[in-house]
Amino acid sequence: MRAAPDLSTAVWRKSSYSNNEGGVCVEVADEIPGLVPVRDSQRPHGPALLIPHHAWAAFIAGLKGERPAGR
Results as ranks from 00 to 15, higher is better:
52 P>F: 08
57 A>Y: 04
15 S>I: 10
60 I>R: 13
69 A>N: 08
55 A>Q: 11
43 R>S: 08
36 V>G: 00
15 S>K: 13
27 E>T: 10
66 E>R: 14
18 S>E: 03
50 L>A: 00
66 E>H: 11
51 I>T: 11
42 Q>A: 14
32 I>L: 13
30 D>S: 15
67 R>C: 11
56 W>E: 01
10 A>S: 11
40 D>Q: 03
1 M>Q: 11
24 V>F: 09
50 L>E: 01
52 P>R: 05
22 G>Q: 09
30 D>R: 13
55 A>G: 12
4 A>S: 12
68 P>I: 08
30 D>V: 15
14 K>H: 05
67 R>M: 10
68 P>L: 12
20 N>H: 11
36 V>Y: 00
11 V>N: 06
57 A>G: 12
25 C>F: 03
34 G>M: 12
71 R>Y: 09
22 G>F: 07
60 I>H: 08
24 V>P: 10
8 S>L: 08
17 Y>H: 12
42 Q>S: 10
35 L>E: 01
43 R>Y: 04
15 S>G: 11
17 Y>K: 09
31 E>G: 06
54 H>P: 03
33 P>G: 05
38 V>W: 06
51 I>G: 05
64 K>P: 00
67 R>L: 15
26 V>Q: 04
13 R>Q: 14
64 K>E: 05
16 S>H: 02
69 A>C: 08
12 W>L: 04
69 A>L: 07
65 G>H: 08
68 P>E: 10
54 H>D: 11
5 P>M: 00
12 W>K: 03
20 N>W: 09
9 T>K: 15
48 A>R: 00
49 L>F: 06
35 L>D: 02
50 L>N: 00
47 P>K: 07
5 P>H: 03
52 P>D: 15
33 P>E: 04
16 S>P: 01
35 L>A: 07
1 M>Y: 10
8 S>H: 02
11 V>R: 08
11 V>I: 06
65 G>C: 10
39 R>I: 06
28 V>M: 05
68 P>W: 10
44 P>G: 06
9 T>W: 12
11 V>W: 04
16 S>L: 03
48 A>I: 00
37 P>Y: 02
22 G>M: 08
19 N>G: 15
41 S>T: 03
50 L>Q: 02
6 D>C: 11
26 V>E: 02
38 V>Y: 05
57 A>K: 12
22 G>Y: 05
45 H>G: 08
39 R>W: 01
59 F>R: 02
7 L>E: 07
66 E>A: 13
23 G>W: 05
12 W>V: 01
41 S>L: 07
39 R>N: 02
8 S>M: 04
15 S>T: 13
62 G>I: 14
2 R>Q: 14
66 E>W: 12
40 D>T: 00
61 A>D: 07
63 L>H: 00
46 G>I: 01
28 V>D: 02
42 Q>P: 03
45 H>N: 11
63 L>N: 01
50 L>V: 03
24 V>C: 13
3 A>M: 12
14 K>F: 04
19 N>P: 01
20 N>K: 10
66 E>T: 10
62 G>R: 14
27 E>R: 11
45 H>Q: 12
54 H>C: 06
